[in-house]
């Protein structure tokens, strides 16, 4: 980053800082509301006007994982630990696969263009232009025919395909940004094409790839429609499981839902915090690099 562009916290003056604080508060309020509700008892959660002061309870978090048994005093596994595992496993695996394949494809598109390179890139992108709801019926039928419904293989393959165009386009833009002289220098220094890719190009785009990873993880983590149609009891992901807890004879259990959502947000927040520097670089597509 250039030397003369330093950012000092608090330099912007009180008025701007206050404005930023207000906007942030508005955006953050729903999240705060969920967090608050997760720690409320059922009467507190339903109380009107909204109670901002209450005695917090961990009961909701307990009942996320253990369903109370009406007859005995104990409880049974609600299955949510399994759903969380599914979300992590399916999301992590498919995004990682998409990123590996996408990076390789993007490097090819960027460095060894084919005749009609741009057309291929456009076609790849068109798969993301359709609203998913249009694609769901043929995909559902395909899954039936090939026996993929309810299997990990099926949903992971689908999410990988779903994330691939985004990975390719992002990674290609990072590779396009690199200084070609550096690669030429590596070639002159005796590097094979593989070594140029592995030792020279790849390390320069790690930041961008990390950002792509976060975006793709968030998209996949939140995905509901395909998961609803194509996962079974064994492979159910958290968004589908949340939807299934809504309703029931006793009405919506807001505390329970909020507790699930709180747990659901944590991984995304963690990933974003860990990779925030790379994220910033990623969204600006390398423009602040030089």
């Amino acid at each position: 980053m250039s030397k003369n562009r330093t950012h000092v916290i608090g330099k912007s003056g009180w008025r701007r800082t206050l404005g930023a604080a207000v906007v942030s508060a508005i955006y953050f309020f729903p999240v705060y509301y969920i967090l608050m509700t997760a720690f409320k008892t059922r009467p507190d959660a339903l109380a009107m006007p909204i109670k901002f002061l209450f005695t917090p309870t961990m009961d909701n978090f307990y009942s996320v994982f253990v369903r109370a048994d009406i007859q005995g005093g104990g409880g049974t596994d609600s299955g949510f630990s399994h759903y969380f595992f599914n979300s992590l496993f399916i999301g992590g695996t498919s995004v990682t696969l998409a990123l590996i394949m996408g990076t390789a494809a993007a490097y090819g598109f960027s460095r060894f263009p084919l005749r009609g390179n741009d057309t291929y890139l456009f076609i790849i992108l068109t798969t993301r232009m359709l609203p998913p709801i249009i694609a769901i019926i043929p995909i559902f039928v395909l899954f039936r025919v090939f026996g993929l419904s309810g299997s990990y293989t099926g949903i992971i393959a689908l999410y990988t395909a779903f994330n691939l165009p985004f990975s390719i386009w992002m990674a290609k833009s990072f590779f396009d940004d690199l200084d070609r002289d550096i690669e030429d220098a590596a070639r002159m220094d005796g590097s094979s094409e593989w070594r140029v890719f592995r030792k020279i190009c790849l390390p320069q785009v790690y930041g961008g790839l990390a950002a792509t990873f976060v975006f793709a993880v968030i998209l996949t983590w939140n995905e509901f429609l395909f998961a609803l149609m194509l996962t079974g009891t064994e492979t159910r992901t958290v968004p589908v499981a949340i939807a299934r807890t809504i309703g029931g004879q006793v009405g919506v259990d807001w505390g329970l839902m909020s507790a699930i959502e709180t747990l659901f947000i944590i991984p995304v927040v963690l990933v974003t915090f860990v990779l925030q520097n790379q994220l910033l670089r990623g969204v600006t597509f390398g423009t602040i690099r030089k």
């Binding site: 200084d179 002289d181 550096i182 030429d184 220098a185 590596a186 030792k199 390390p203 320069q204």
Partner: peptide, 8 residues
């Protein structure tokens, strides 16, 4: 190289 092309 003109722009040095050091491996960053």
């Amino acid at each position: 190289f003109q722009f040095y092309a050091l491996y960053p």
